[in-house]
Design a protein around this nucleic acid. Structure first.
Length: 703
DNA sequence: CAAGATGTAATTTTT
DNA sequence: TTACATCTTG
């Protein structure tokens, strides 16, 4: 075919990418391997549809999972095609919010609803359950409710797939009811209510289907059942639907992601055309080969063969180390040799970052940590946002309870209880409830309430007069939040006051008054800019989950030990289900494929757990990488600990045990799977161990 | 009503 | 070990 006359962005594509871009006429599933130019294809496809096919930008809907992805897609589409400004590029939740604000009135949803995040939901459920349940149980129930919503199930549905708990349906129903009295929605509702809207109102469904003739979904492997149902409602027979994803990179099962969505897409949508993107542009051959070998151990996958024309590259370095201190030292060494920029240290769990932070701080290695706490989740920001929320919606119970005594106004638990009781009797909102004379309140509390009300009145008036940004400035001063946190900052060395001031800047782009405030609140929550822009010259500390969509020259994946990576909390490693292991393996696969040129894997012999050392075994994933791709790190620690082979505890070997201390192996018998080792300790005692189940470590002879 | 004391639990996390 | 949540005391 003649591609000479086509725009540059088309000529740069490989044949599969090209076919995916120009395809029309049936549902399309693009199976895009890691580093295969997935985002490029989806953005080019949008540009091409507008430019070459004459599709109206307003009729295109592109859905992603993260704000970051949405933002990136917007930027890339607009840079390719200026006319694409009208394309709707949103996250699933943001799309739901749009749908409900636009048409929600048809099913009785007030367009000015606020969105409760997970913390809010939990606080909410706590109010419902705290009399009879512990914190852990409440969390469990919330998690079940969320899972149910992920599956598109309401309180009245059969919840057996979520849990057999007898009380769940009742608690779920009570939660929904309580939420309804505030008029607000939680994250799950943004999807659930959208489905309900389109099902109950054929007129709305028709309007939506007429508007969106072309729908694209990115990261489809992480969609859940509810999102699939929503997609089914949005897409009619005439809608062109294209989904992009990689079943090997599905890592959010614990959040309700349903790999079946992508695996079963061709059956769900008849006449589906499947295009595979298997050409990798990111990694060296060795890295890619390792990644493929590892993930090929998974059974539940479509299977694809990634190839690359890139160089073979260096061997993968595997370092067996003594403990997390040595691991941090190893990372420091990698960084000092190669530079911090374009280097990432990956770990399975957030708390693992501490060891790296400590050492890097001491050694003066510049680093940044990605994705610990979101801006809007900060205590002080949340306080300010709750004042704002209360101004928009005086029914907002949660917001009221959070800020009524913040900063302290002398309204304690007892006084609050009385107000809550009083509110429960009438049907006035929280502010009206406080406005009326309070009986039985202490003088102090009554004064506090009066103060609170006059503060809110002042703010309500200010909201109409000031720009939003200035209004927020007024708010944090008039409420006393700023002063309160300035004092706390001085005591605790935090930076909460400056975060509050940051909020003033964040509000700059928004219009004034209620309308602007509403937009601002939604954007803070649903489009909160995460501070993920790679700063120059710093090493990146990041969880493996958070690396999705990123790439680095050099990657160190740390903590490759059974129980850490793969992780299986609370479960016996022996009976961990294969499904769980496969998800962990996919996560490892994601980690490996982030590396462009160099990959390092570290595994520790001992790890500190809640102040105690426990021995761990190397991750099974390490054995899944073909030996010829790997070079074992031979640093200072090699003498202390080498990969365990039969000789590790041979007769005469010097060993250390957590409880017994130092000793010498005097006998080594093989018994089936495990060897039985007899040790005489320096204290004179002897004991027998199965090394696999003990904390026995081989050490250097000198010790 | 607010600061200290004791107890308990401990993944990953888009929105 | 540490972080937090709930309980007790000033």
């Amino acid at each position: 075919m003649n591609r000479e006359n086509q725009p540059v962005y088309l000529r740069e594509l490989n044949p599969e990418q090209y076919n995916a871009v120009i395809h029309t006429g049936s549902p399309l599933l693009i199976l895009a391997g890691a580093g295969s130019g997935k985002t490029r294809v989806i953005t080019t496809k949008i540009a091409y549809a507008v430019d070459a096919l004459g599709v109206s930008p307003e009729s295109i809907l592109a859905v992603t999972f993260t704000n970051k992805a949405a933002l990136e897609m917007k930027t890339r589409v607009f840079s390719m095609c200026a006319r694409a400004g009208g394309v709707m590029i949103r996250t699933f939740h943001s799309f739901g919010a749009w749908l409900l604000r636009t048409y929600g009135g048809n099913i009785g949803i007030a367009p000015a609803f606020l969105i409760y995040d997970e913390d809010d939901s939990l606080a909410f459920l706590k109010r419902e359950l705290r009399e009879n349940y512990g914190a852990a149980q409440i969390k469990q129930y919330l998690s079940w409710i969320q899972r149910a919503k992920d599956l598109g199930l309401g309180p009245e549905d059969d919840l057996k797939r979520v849990s057999h708990d007898r009380h769940l349906p009742g608690i779920f129903a009570a939660y929904q009811e309580r939420l309804a009295t505030t008029g607000n929605l939680d994250f799950g509702d943004l999807i659930m209510k959208s489905i309900e809207l389109l099902r109950r109102r054929p007129d709305t469904k028709q309007a939506v289907r007429e508007r969106f003739g072309m729908v694209l979904v990115d990261e489809y492997q992480d969609s859940n059942v509810a999102q699939f149902k929503l997609l089914q409602e949005v897409c009619g027979d005439d809608t062109y639907l294209c989904v992009v994803g990689d079943d090997d990179q599905s890592i959010y099962k614990f959040r309700g992601a349903e790999v079946e969505n992508i695996l079963g897409f061709p059956e769900q949508f008849p006449r589906t055309r499947v295009i595979r993107l298997e050409q990798n542009y990111r990694s060296t051959r060795k890295i890619l080969e390792a990644a493929s070998a590892v993930v090929s151990h998974n059974k539940n996958r479509l299977g694809k063969t990634l190839t690359t024309v890139n160089n073979e590259g260096r061997e993968i370095v595997v370092a067996y180390l003594q403990d997390y201190t040595e691991e941090a030292e190893f990372c420091a060494e990698v960084i000092n040799r190669n530079g911090a920029e374009e280097t990432a240290v990956l770990y399975r769990m957030n708390y693992q970052s501490r060891h790296f932070e400590e050492l890097f701080l001491r050694m003066g290695i510049p680093y940044r940590i990605v994705g610990t706490q979101r801006f809007y989740e900060r205590e002080e920001i949340k306080d300010a946002l709750c004042y704002l929320a209360l101004l928009i919606n005086p029914q907002d119970e949660l917001a009221f309870l959070r800020v009524v005594n913040k900063p302290p106004r002398g309204i304690g638990r007892v006084s609050l209880e009385k107000i809550v009781d009083r509110h429960g009797q009438g049907h006035e909102d929280w502010i009206a409830c406080c406005r009326n004379p309070q009986e039985g309140l202490s003088k102090k509390a009554a004064a506090g309430i009066r103060d609170f009300i006059s503060c809110l009145d002042f703010l309500a008036a200010a909201l109409e007069k000031e720009t939003l940004s200035h209004f927020i400035h007024v708010l944090i001063e008039r409420t006393g939040l700023l002063a309160c946190y300035e004092q706390k900052d001085a005591e605790a060395g935090t930076a909460k006051a400056s975060n509050l001031l940051e909020l003033i800047n964040a509000a700059m782009p928004y219009p004034a008054a209620r309308a602007g405030l509403l937009q601002f609140l939604e954007n803070t929550l649903l489009n909160s800019p995460e501070m993920k822009d790679p700063e120059k010259g710093k090493v990146t500390l990041i969880t493996v989950h958070n690396t999705k969509g990123l790439e680095f020259e050099r990657v160190v994946i740390t903590g490759l030990e059974e129980g850490v990576f793969p992780s299986f909390p609370g479960t016996d490693p022996e009976d961990t289900s294969t499904e769980e292991i496969e998800e962990e393996r996919r996560l490892f696969y994601v980690g490996i494929t982030r590396a462009k040129k160099e990959l390092y894997l570290t595994s520790c012999r001992r790890r500190a757990l809640y102040g105690r050392y426990i021995t761990s075994r190397p991750s099974r994933f390490l054995t899944e990488i073909p030996g010829h791709l790997v070079r074992e790190y031979e640093g200072k620690s090699v003498t202390a600990y080498k990969a365990r082979n039969e000789d590790e505890f041979c007769r005469g070997a010097r060993v250390f045990h957590d409880d017994y201390g130092y000793g010498v192996v005097i006998k080594n018998e093989s018994k089936g799977e495990h060897s039985l080792v007899t040790v005489r300790f320096d204290t004179g005692r002897s004991a027998r161990f199965i090394p696999a189940y003990s904390s026995l470590v081989r050490i250097k002879e000198e010790y």
